[in-house]
Design a protein around this nucleic acid. Structure first.
Length: 964
RNA sequence: GCGGGUGUGGUGAAAUUGGUAGACACGCUAGACUUAGGAUCUAGUGCUUCACGGCUUGGGGGUUCGAGUCCCUUCACCCGCACCA
């Protein structure tokens, strides 16, 4: 009758008596603590989840974003994504895939170093302690990670390869013709043979032109300087985001709203000699690649915005009385005739060269004022169009009008060329600037009033006062003007990208050392065979007295080129010893390629072996937070494409599908203190105006918001002398939903839930909370529902706490219930809709309980079905059913559609004669009558309408087609 | 300002993608059993009405035999970017 378990049924039938007798008298309660511990031990001691790189099965690689092991430990928000991925991993194993589901630690980073500065404890020590705690917590939740593949970015065996990739970047340039990265040696060959003629190498510096003869006559230092303009990892004087309080530079993505992401400190602009990654060479490919990725639209859009491609023109304006030109970028070359002045960013290099001598003092003052402003202050000033006139004039390339050159901080040095042609009639900012500084506004839009505001739309106008562009609309004017300026040679069509090269140095200790040493101030890579360059020990983690990064504190930190090793810096009296790079790499370096190391974690020859990478290829499903959209997820795509160019990796995108799990928010608790006193008031006793909110640890607060103030007084010194004003004998707090964090005292530790309800309940409950992508506040009020479901499921296998499962043929109803569940859950896991899976389980178990189903042929497949969600209880029941193997090896049950004939549904149907139905009717209709409905024979339909009382019963449960 | 998203009971949420809205769970109400318990079980529970019935997916409009779902419009909230020339 049931086909899916035929083979196992036969196997059981001859040993059934033994099994039955054995279990008949064993009394078992659902003791989740003992069960979960037992199976966690079983899994790890038998290496159940160890995965091999060779298998006849198809591969499936499911990846979580690896955590940074912070001192606070895991809270209930962290596992959300891990639970989802673990369900998929276990499900795919049941489905016959060879599943790679690894985990590791992003173990370099700021917090451990800040902690080291405060306590003197080596970051490595604290990191190790934290990792140990994380692993214990993770294992408690029953994740099926293959720990034999664990990686840590701070281990030398790992960062050896981060350094290796860095050197590869240093030794490469971007060939524009081949549209890929190539060895720098090829560029050198080109320079040798043809100089910069027909140069097709990407750079964002000004190209210095030279012939082959000139190149060959250059000193090697000059050659090296020139090459730095082309290398994909390069050092240069760059304007950086300097964060004084953290003592380091920050990348653009590490700054949120003008302050540092970590700590929220002030950030200012500063010129410093820094390493950068030439990610801009990959702008177009990074943009392009997004189209084929199955990633959330919002995330792809964020990356598109970050790359910020815009089409327009670059135009050169000559400067009166000088031999300089100002190059600008504009997306509106059609408004070229409306230019009435030019505007430069305060950091623009031409300013001091063209400024009037008598104005130079004020100009310098202005520039100084702007540069000392923090990013945030500059943003705050955005309503005020501050600026100053240089005294110089640019020449309009078409009309030869003289255009005053101004400086203003609304022009950003980092975008385009750091200079704009100002068209007050067509741009809001130019308009308000012109108004404020009384610069003329020239209207170029026919019948449009620009006296009050600029007209910024790209349609709905024709041009006037625009020379050759008169009477044209946007599209035509755009094309015509570009042709015109290209013919004149004063401009060309250009594509501009907002994205900047990524600053790669950090003035920090706890990061990967950059494998570079210096000869005459120029960087040289350490040969790859001498990697890793290990992080030296230092006695303090602060910058040196001379202001060098912390690595300057190490006394064994110089490269001996002759001995090919790092030696003590005290020995510098020997010409072969060179200073090492003192900066370290940023946090994103180690995380930009880690997913490949899992494939082959112990390879000493390469960061990933060819065989391993050809087997696993890429990540099938990547789960992690959307906060990494413009950081990790962009940088890692960049490195991926680079390593793909080197033919090391087989694909140019590493994760075809990605989902963002939502955040689980905490519910902070506040109590109110009377100002200047030590009295606290319960929620409804608060007297207005005189209280201030104070956070209290939510472990002292229960679900009904009642504060255990006695425990608080006894456990927290800060409250030992406080007085609490109660209401009805209780003290009530107020709640607020915020991000879970240690500093907000609102962390819920998953260990607590595991102890109270068990890991299986925690896993299912987190999935039951709602769709995986959604953020939601943590709330335990519903957890009993899930817990009692698990107990109900357990009780299906028992009668009066005695294991009781039989071999009888199940009822038709039970079979149907099972098959409905299989179909629904299979479907929902594939669409990652885990919350509806849980509902389906609940319905299924409730129905089977009501049917008093004890038949093995139903319960056994149900156990497999549930095992991805609640693996411990599944294993336990699986073994109680008499199996010796782990349930992970079991095949997933398959549903039979023929058993799922739908129940009859009644739909009220009304006719108005215009509708054509294709129906199967259970009414006694002749073929002719059905045909006439299909043929839209109005008369027959009307007759039918009279014959049918009120309803048509549709047997198939669905109207197949409606044609209007 | 630009981009992305979300609005469904007291609460978290479902809805086979246009086919009986509110599945499942929490909470609540009543009852049962008890060496009172925050245990278990049974029944009820969108709103409204004594009832028959009527109303209901942020608001308004439209397409359709039929709309939570599609289109237009409007409001509210969340997230990301933001002086981007």
């Amino acid at each position: 009758m049931i086909s899916l378990y035929q083979s196992t049924n036969i196997l059981f039938s001859f040993q059934s008596i033994n099994v039955f007798l054995l279990f008949k008298y064993v009394v078992v309660f659902y003791d989740f603590k003992q069960i979960e511990l037992k199976w966690q031990k079983f899994w790890s001691s038998n290496n159940i989840y160890k995965v091999e790189n060779k298998s006849p099965k198809p591969k499936y690689y499911i990846l979580d974003m690896f955590p940074y092991p912070s001192g606070a430990g895991l809270h209930v928000g962290h596992p959300l994504g891990y639970i989802a991925s673990d369900i998929v991993a276990r499900y795919k194993r049941h489905k016959g895939f060879n599943v790679l589901h690894p985990q590791g630690f992003d173990s370099f980073g700021l917090p451990a170093e800040q902690y080291a500065i405060q306590t003197g404890k080596h970051p490595q020590k604290t990191t190790e302690v934290n990792i140990k705690r994380y692993k214990e917590q993770l294992d408690k939740m029953g994740f099926s990670f293959d720990w034999s593949r664990e990686i840590r970015t701070s281990k030398p065996e790992y960062y050896k390869w981060t350094q290796w990739i860095f050197i590869s970047l240093f030794e490469s340039y971007y060939d524009l013709k081949k549209d890929k990265a190539m060895p720098i040696t090829e560029l050198i060959e080109k320079f040798k043979s043809q100089g910069t003629k027909n140069l097709n190498a990407f750079t964002n510096s000004d190209v210095i032109h030279f012939s082959s003869e000139e190149w060959n006559s250059f000193k090697s230092s000059k050659k090296n300087k020139i090459l730095l303009d082309y290398r994909l990892a390069y050092i240069s004087d760059t304007e950086v985001n300097w964060c004084k309080d953290l003592g380091t530079v920050l990348a653009n993505d590490e700054i949120i709203n003008g302050v540092s992401e970590r700590g929220g400190y002030k950030v200012e602009k500063k010129i410093m000699r820094q390493w950068s990654m030439r990610i801009t060479a990959y702008s177009e490919r990074l943009l392009d690649g997004l189209n084929d990725l199955n990633w959330p639209d919002s995330l792809k859009e964020m990356q598109r915005n970050w790359i910020g491609k815009s089409k327009g023109a670059s135009i050169k304006f000559k400067i009166k009385n000088f031999n300089y030109e100002i190059e600008i970028f504009t997306t509106r070359p059609d408004t070229l005739y409306g230019v009435t002045f030019m505007n430069l960013a305060p950091e623009h290099e031409l300013i001091l060269k063209i400024t009037d001598k008598n104005k130079i003092k004020n100009i310098k003052k202005y520039i100084n004022l702007v540069s000392t402003k923090s990013e945030r202050e500059r943003l705050a000033d955005n309503q005020i169009a501050s600026g100053i006139f240089t005294g110089a004039y640019a020449i309009h390339p078409l009309t030869s009008e003289e255009l005053p050159i101004w400086i203003s901080d609304y022009v950003l040095a980092g975008y385009g060329t750091g200079a704009v042609m100002a068209v007050p009639s067509g741009d809001e900012r130019d308009f308000s600037f012109a108004k404020k500084h009384k610069i003329p506004i020239k209207n170029i839009f026919k019948n449009i009033d620009v006296s009050k505001s600029a007209y910024t739309q790209k349609d709905g106008f024709t041009l006037i006062n625009s020379g050759i562009l008169n009477d044209l609309k946007f599209e035509d004017a755009y094309i015509k003007i570009i042709n015109h300026i290209e013919t004149l040679g004063c401009g060309k069509e250009t594509v501009n990208y907002k994205i900047r090269d990524a600053i790669f140095s950090r003035q920090r200790y706890w990061g990967e050392p950059i494998p570079i040493y210096y000869v005459n101030g120029l960087p040289r890579p350490i040969e790859k065979k001498y990697l890793p360059i290990e992080l030296p020990t230092v006695d303090q983690y602060l910058p040196t007295a001379e202001g060098h990064p912390p690595l300057g504190n190490a006394d064994n930190w110089a490269w001996d080129e002759r001995r090919k090793k790092i030696v003590s810096i005290k020995l510098i009296n020997n010409e072969y010893i060179f200073p090492m790079e003192l900066n370290t790499m940023p946090g994103w370096a180690g995380s930009s390629w880690y997913f490949y190391r899992y494939m082959d974690p112990n390879n000493n020859e390469m960061f990933v072996g060819e065989e391993a990478v050809n087997y696993w290829k890429d990540v099938d499903l990547y789960i992690g937070g959307s906060e990494h959209a413009t950081g990790h997820l962009l940088y890692s795509r960049f490195w991926q494409k680079f390593l793909f160019d080197l033919n090391i990796l087989p694909v140019s995108e590493y994760a075809r599908k990605l989902i963002n799990q939502g955040m689980i928010l905490g519910s902070s608790a506040f109590i109110y203190r009377k100002r200047g006193s030590d009295k606290y008031y319960s929620k409804n006793k608060i007297k207005k105006n005189h209280v201030e909110p104070i956070r209290v640890d939510i472990s002292f607060v229960d679900d009904s918001d009642q504060l255990d103030y006695v425990a608080l007084i006894n456990n927290d010194k800060n409250f030992s002398k406080s007085k609490f004003i109660l209401e009805n004998g209780k003290f009530i707090v107020t709640r607020e939903v915020e991000k879970m964090s240690k500093s907000k005292f609102n962390i819920v530790n998953p260990d607590k839930i595991c102890n109270e309800y068990g890991a299986d309940t925690l896993r299912m409950y987190e999935m039951f909370l709602g769709p995986i992508e959604q953020s939601k506040p943590w709330n335990t009020s519903g957890i009993t529902g899930v817990h009692s479901f698990i107990k109900k499921f357990w009780n299906l296998f028992f009668s009066n706490d005695v294991f009781d499962v039989n071999y009888n043929n199940p009822s038709k109803k039970s079979i149907k219930v099972l098959h409905q569940a299989i179909k629904k859950i299979d479907n929902d896991i594939n669409s990652l809709s885990f919350n509806t899976c849980i509902s389906a389980f609940m319905i299924c178990v409730n129905k089977l309980t009501n049917l008093n189903c004890k038949e093995r042929s139903i319960l056994e497949p149900l156990t497999i079905l549930i095992s991805p969600f609640a693996p411990h209880i599944a294993e336990e029941l699986w073994s109680l059913l008499g199996n010796n193997n782990s349930i992970v090896d079991e095949k997933y049950p398959v549903h039979d559609d023929s058993l799922l004939v739908e129940t009859e549904k009644n739909y009220p149907v009304s006719f108005n004669g215009k509708v054509k139905f294709t129906l199967e009717l259970s009414l006694e209709l002749s073929n002719e009558e059905i045909k006439s409905i299909v043929m839209n024979d109005e008369r027959t339909i009307l007759q039918l309408k009279n014959r049918i009382p009120k309803k048509i019963i549709i047997v198939s449960g669905k109207i197949i087609n409606i044609v209007n």
